[in-house]
Computed example of a mutant assay.
Amino acid sequence: MRTFRLALAGSVATLLMLGSAMAGDIVFRSPDDAMKQGISAFNGGYYELALPAFEALETSKPQIARFYMARIYGDNEGAYTDHGKAFRLYKSLADDLQDVDPDDDSLAPIAAKSLTAVSTYLRNGVANAGVKPDVEAANRALQRAALTFNDEDAQFELAKVFLRGEGPDISVAGFEDPSSKIANGRHWLSRLSQAGHPGAQAFLADLMWRGKFVEKNPTAALNLIDVAVANAPPSERVWIEDIYQNIFCNAGEGVRQQATGRVAEWHNLYGRSPAARDDKDGLDNLAAEPVRTCSNGELVRPMGVATPTPATQVITSTPSVSPQRNAVIPAATSLQPAAASQSAPALSSSAPMLGFGAGEPTAR
């Protein structure tokens, strides 16, 4: 799992000033050194090096220190998993930053991510911390992260909550309206997918493939999941590629040909520019991801990569005019805070479009 552990650990360790190796004391020249050490070790998965750095950073940059420590304790795959500690740290951050300016580029993201994490913990409870489920508080925290801080990950979580028939109550004439929750869930997925959020794109592609909550559309599903894979950060690639593999391997040749004919259009509409990489060590030249194959041995490949034997059929379905950004994924209503009497943004009754036709069943 840690193929380059020795090399990376050696690089990270150069940022440390060790007092006594036997005593395990770690001294940093400055808070900036502690932050560089902590974040570098955290990104590499070396929590044993990251935690001392963040502990040393608590006095000078407490929000950053507590946020990263909460992420370490909340990682189920790490050696320091302690969800009780993670919850308490996230909760303290959410409380301390409740009045932070949503335009504060340094603290607003921490507040939003902390609120989202608190919502998840409160929805399910934290047994080892004696925290019982509190769905109403979970809904409030998630709504604040999604609406006040306009956090995309919080909006994605809100979409999934709505599609489960949960989330903030939406009342019509005094009665809860489950169909409105489904509509709001689709609203968020549509909006986020158009904006290029890879998680929402993958989730919506899976729904399109299965015909659940939306109209079944295998070709659109294949195109959208192809874009999601290209947009996905390393931390999200595994589950998104799992969906891609399932759709790609089960798509017939006709579906693949139709998707190939529009792959460039979809990437142009819904793609995001990849983050720049610094390949000083030359590691990008190595295969960093597993090779995936279908059950018949066929290589799972991006739609923009030609097969060894190109198909002879000419696809002529690509429109000759420049596409609009909402031409394929239905346009979502503009994001507006809910009114005082309504705890979730309403979805306007716009004309039915692909995947979101009026009168479609809410589950399948």
Results as ranks from 00 to 15, higher is better:
residue 134 D to P: 02
residue 158 L to H: 00
residue 80 Y to G: 05
residue 315 I to G: 03
residue 33 D to E: 12
residue 139 N to D: 15
residue 150 N to S: 13
residue 356 F to W: 11
residue 304 G to H: 12
residue 284 D to H: 03
residue 117 A to F: 05
residue 56 A to S: 15
residue 184 N to W: 01
residue 45 G to E: 09
residue 236 E to H: 08
residue 136 E to M: 10
residue 227 V to C: 04
residue 245 Q to R: 15
residue 146 A to P: 00
residue 176 E to I: 09
residue 216 K to T: 06
residue 22 M to D: 15
residue 170 I to M: 10
residue 48 E to K: 05
residue 356 F to M: 06
residue 152 E to G: 06
residue 175 F to L: 12
residue 46 Y to R: 14
residue 136 E to C: 03
residue 281 D to C: 04
residue 230 A to E: 10
residue 246 N to C: 01
residue 280 K to M: 11
residue 158 L to F: 01
residue 57 L to Q: 13
residue 247 I to S: 04
residue 127 A to P: 03
residue 261 G to N: 05
residue 202 A to C: 03
residue 143 Q to Y: 02
residue 55 E to G: 06
residue 215 E to N: 11
residue 260 T to W: 09
residue 211 G to S: 04
residue 83 H to I: 13
residue 267 H to F: 11
residue 205 A to R: 00
residue 58 E to W: 04
residue 189 L to R: 00
residue 307 T to P: 01
residue 306 A to K: 13
residue 278 D to R: 12
residue 310 P to A: 09
residue 192 L to P: 10
residue 298 E to Y: 07
residue 266 W to Y: 15
residue 162 F to Y: 14
residue 38 G to L: 03
residue 206 D to M: 13
residue 18 L to Y: 08
residue 35 M to V: 08
residue 202 A to D: 06
residue 229 V to K: 05
residue 322 S to I: 08
residue 339 A to H: 10
residue 261 G to A: 04
residue 244 Y to C: 01
residue 144 R to T: 10
residue 183 A to F: 04
residue 346 A to E: 15
residue 279 D to L: 10
residue 207 L to Y: 09
residue 256 R to S: 08
residue 263 V to W: 01
residue 196 G to H: 03
residue 12 V to M: 06
residue 76 N to D: 15
residue 336 Q to Y: 01
residue 154 A to Y: 04
residue 95 D to Y: 04
residue 219 T to R: 02
residue 316 T to N: 14
residue 314 V to Y: 06
residue 115 L to D: 01
residue 269 L to S: 02
residue 299 L to A: 11
residue 214 V to Q: 00
residue 159 A to C: 07
residue 167 G to T: 07
residue 338 A to F: 11
residue 237 R to H: 08
residue 221 A to I: 02
residue 176 E to Q: 14
residue 9 A to D: 08
residue 282 G to Q: 04
residue 272 R to T: 14
residue 36 K to H: 13
residue 193 S to F: 00
residue 57 L to D: 13
